[in-house]
């Protein structure tokens, strides 16, 4: 079981690494949000893998479901914000947001 836990941790770390690199390197707002989604998948995998290793899978499932519900709310709000930013700046470039400086 312990080796399986490390396998899940390894792949979860890979997902989190990809997400962080995407956040650092991309400029498109939708791409940045996709990177956040990938990061979230890594977190879900860590929660579930640890739940499996600790034999507390039901609690892990409850936590993952809570995370998914919060994720939906976050996605809806963030995409609405992105659409509004696009209407204002006619671009999805994150550098265009520097115009919002006071």
């Amino acid at each position: 079981m312990s080796n399986t836990w490390y396998l899940y941790l390894f792949f979860a770390a890979a997902l989190i690494g990809a997400g962080v690199l995407g956040l650092l390197g991309k400029r498109n707002l939708i791409k940045l949000f996709i990177a956040i989604e990938v990061l979230g998948k890594g977190i879900s995998l860590i929660l579930m893998g640890t739940g499996l290793a600790k034999a507390s899978l039901l609690t892990a499932q409850a936590l993952v479901i809570t995370y998914i519900v919060i994720e939906v709310s976050l996605v809806a709000t963030a995409l609405a914000l992105i659409i509004n930013v696009y209407r204002q700046t006619k671009s999805l470039d994150v550098r265009g947001l520097s115009k919002l400086k006071g």
Partner: peptide
């Protein structure tokens, strides 16, 4: 809804 979104230069 953001058709020209692909135009962003990475």
């Amino acid at each position: 809804l953001t058709k020209s979104g692909d135009d962003v230069r990475e």
